[in-house]
Write a protein that binds this DNA or RNA. Structure first.
Length: 255
DNA sequence: ATGCCCTACTTGGTAGGA
């Protein structure tokens, strides 16, 4: 079983790259972030042609998430239940025996800003919801663009980024609180290349210089942890013409 | 360095991203 998460930064722009990537890797389930499409504009037919059903939760211009799967998704949830939010950031569904939660965490802009306060409220609500979701669905993955670099090892220049957005103590504490629910960072279950990032700024030749952050993550629940066969970041799509600034993260489960 | 790039949109500056 292969699953992936990818912040495509506009599916309207990136659809050809997504279709090519799906054809090459044939994952079973994929969550997308920053589709930036209202649901009526989602390319349902093109993805069906590629073999994927789509559960979509979009909005105009910003945000927007989707859950693509070869098998139908059941019990679909959009956004965090009980947390009023005009922004489309979460889509969850049950695919086979797995509960898949796809999420686009708020950016937060700058510590102390109103957007940062929203990020903190959103993270708190996510934590409370997942606590219940894990009780109901022990075989759970939380995958997406977290907009949090959990450790200094996830940052190309930890000194320059110290205290900056994605690297603040508050954000990292929220990440640890998710782990404390009984979740595990699948990428760190394996030895990985040093300087592994999932996002590189479009500016400053950042990709060519490998100056990035690891902010896209897949967390797996306790019972799934022994079934994780691999977890990798696929940097190749970042080398495309007109790439997303994020790379896909891919996980393989056995059993 | 409140700069750099990319996307969307009331299509020309602006907002937002990270």
């Amino acid at each position: 079983m292969k699953l992936a998460t990818w912040n495509v930064n506009s599916l309207a722009v990136r659809l050809p790259q997504l279709l090519a990537w799906l054809a090459e890797h044939h994952p079973d389930t994929v969550v997308l972030q920053e589709t930036k499409l209202t649901d009526d504009k989602f390319p349902v037919a093109e993805l069906a042609e590629a073999g994927y059903l789509a559960q979509v939760f979009g909005q105009k211009t910003y945000n927007g998430v989707a859950l693509l799967s070869r098998e139908p998704a059941a019990d679909v949830v959009k956004n965090i239940p009980g947390f009023e939010d005009p922004q489309a950031r979460v889509i969850a569904g049950t695919v086979g025996s797995l509960r898949v939660v796809g999420a686009y965490f708020p950016n937060g802009q700058a510590p102390g800003s109103e957007k940062f306060a929203y990020k903190m409220r959103w993270l708190e609500a996510l934590h409370e919801w997942l606590k219940a979701e894990l009780q109901r669905y022990p075989r759970l993955l939380l995958m997406g663009d977290y907009n949090v670099a959990p450790e200094d090892a996830d940052v190309h220049d930890p000194v320059a980024w110290a205290g900056q957005i994605h690297c603040t103590p508050e954000e990292r504490e929220h990440f640890r609180q998710l782990l404390a629910l009984g979740l595990h960072d699948a990428f760190r279950l394996f030895e990985q290349p040093p300087k592994s990032w999932s996002w590189w700024d479009y500016r400053n030749l950042a990709f060519r210089r490998n100056q990035g952050l690891r902010i896209d993550h897949i967390l797996v629940s306790d019972v799934l942890k022994p079934q994780v066969a691999s977890c990798v970041i696929d940097k190749l799509p970042r080398k495309n013409e007109r790439p997303s600034d994020h790379a896909p993260v891919v996980i393989e489960l056995i059993g």
